[in-house]
Design a protein around this nucleic acid. Sequence first.
DNA 1: CTGAAAGCGCTTACAG
DNA 2: CTGAAAGCGCTTACAG
Lengths: 347, 347
Amino acid sequence: MSDPRNVRKAVTVTDIALGSGVSRATVSLVLRGSPLVHADTRAKVEAELKRQGYVYNRSAANLRRRTSSSVALVINDLSNPFFAEFAAGVDDAVAAEGYVVLLGNTGESPERERAVLASLMEHQPAGVILSPAEHSDGERLESALGTQAPVLVFNRELPGAHWDFLALDNRHGARLATEHLLELGHRRIAFFGGHADSSSCRERRQGYADALQAADISPQPQWQIETAPTRLDAAASSQALFAGAADAPTAAVCYNDTVALGLMLGLTAQGRRPGHDFALTGFDDIPEAALATPALTTIAVDPRARGRQAAELLLQRIREPERAAQRTIAPVRLLARASSCAPLGSA
Amino acid sequence: MSDPRNVRKAVTVTDIALGSGVSRATVSLVLRGSPLVHADTRAKVEAELKRQGYVYNRSAANLRRRTSSSVALVINDLSNPFFAEFAAGVDDAVAAEGYVVLLGNTGESPERERAVLASLMEHQPAGVILSPAEHSDGERLESALGTQAPVLVFNRELPGAHWDFLALDNRHGARLATEHLLELGHRRIAFFGGHADSSSCRERRQGYADALQAADISPQPQWQIETAPTRLDAAASSQALFAGAADAPTAAVCYNDTVALGLMLGLTAQGRRPGHDFALTGFDDIPEAALATPALTTIAVDPRARGRQAAELLLQRIREPERAAQRTIAPVRLLARASSCAPLGSA
DNA sequence: CTGAAAGCGCTTACAG
DNA sequence: CTGAAAGCGCTTACAG
């Protein structure tokens, strides 16, 4: 923290009052745009404000008024473009309402998460948007967060927490992707990639199963391939799709875009042409998806809009603190591109 | 901003003093870890702190002590992974010193930049890290920034500004890439992509020219191809490299990775095999660079380390406000990968 | 080692 | 419409 002797003497309301021959109260009224002060007085004060280069000390005002003009934003992984976009969306919406963002990045560490929250709470945010680290524990967070500020949890459900919650519609997204492949004429459709124990993977598999069931297809166990959510592991696991030659799938709903791009690589290495011999879809719409060859059909989640939405929900809650906690599921949409072709030999 | 009636009554030092039978001054000393207070008293107060769920009001303390515990971070484009990583690095280093980050994203708009800075300055940051928007004007920013807090400018030079400055070594990076191609045996080397009027492009071209000149090669004008810094335009411009059939280049130093990946696409479309028929290098080391086929030789700039470095420089300046403004050029390094092959027909 | 008092920069009833 | 006074939650000389 900064050393007192380094802080140059700031211009205060007292300086302005002295300089323009009015009381501090009047200066304050001018600053807050009160209609009570005479236009001439206002003009005089405003000139003095400009002349002395006054900058408002909002912390002091917040202290006196018992208000807050900041929102804490705690992100599990800012280097992930998805969350960076989310943060940009939060900043957008929050700035439009006159709030400032107090940022904390936890890098997926629950310990850092606790430390960061404790530090941010000391700055009296009006609310907190928390995208939890993996394995972070809701109950322990409650003590770090206290009850002063409302909290909105994003993306990952927090066991044992009773706060507002915003998440993507994983289930519906996977269902949309699967239905799209069904409409193209595929019947043997795999679900490829991801760790089945992660909640997002579980939800996406569920949506996949929903769609198949609605089409009277029972998903074969060998159509469900687990991989690490990385390009490399996805590429390496691609031949597993074709183990049972007779009923090998003709298409795959992939856990996410990264996995889908890895699968494309793997298919190509096997001499199969994605988007021609084999159809596939991703999830997330990362920038590369549109640029891949073939372009990847995927589910857009629009992280920036999610950030704005999270901010709106929090601001609403700040206004109505007594309302019951709320779960919001954000819409997702299908982006059909070249990677989802019709099955070979279909009309 | 939040409405006063929503702020639940906070626990204050007065409550703790009352609850533990000491004066507020003593509670304050306990909070700040002073050795002046007796161990028993300390224990008693700490128990009360825990019991009442006290949370320190750092703004009030900052007001009284005339200190600040925040740093403003203003980013031109948070959705760019390079800057998101940079922000993560800043947060890292700044949090380690007990500061909190006040985030602002300008989305490359000079107007928003001014608004964001004005709003952040009202929160009395101890310093400001500013990655300027394109076309933002140093002189106009000075008035928004005032003289209260020291400023560190990152990445883009601000005409007319006299603040600390941190930038990448664009010139040296391009020189490294060019030298690498020369060592592989190339003699006809292009500089491909980017707008020649951007400062980073100019600096990179300079490094390219330096290396060629040191090798007694005079760069041909037709080896220097301008493009928008996008994959699409780079792909579309790739045949321009081979216009002069006789002395067509065998390799290209690309403005950045995005352009290099676009060039790869363009080459492939023409039936040339990048990394085999033609060598190329990028700049930035974006995540895709390592994953491309062939993997892209590039210049790593390590944005997260740059963020930490920016924070260090600012904190240093906060400690020594009187020191003269300082220009720092951050190191870059060559990552040789498969895309930079030897010329065809060389041993 | 502890307490009473003043003050950081602001705002807000309350008088006038 | 303007001013004097009190107070937000903290810290810090200064006494004791």
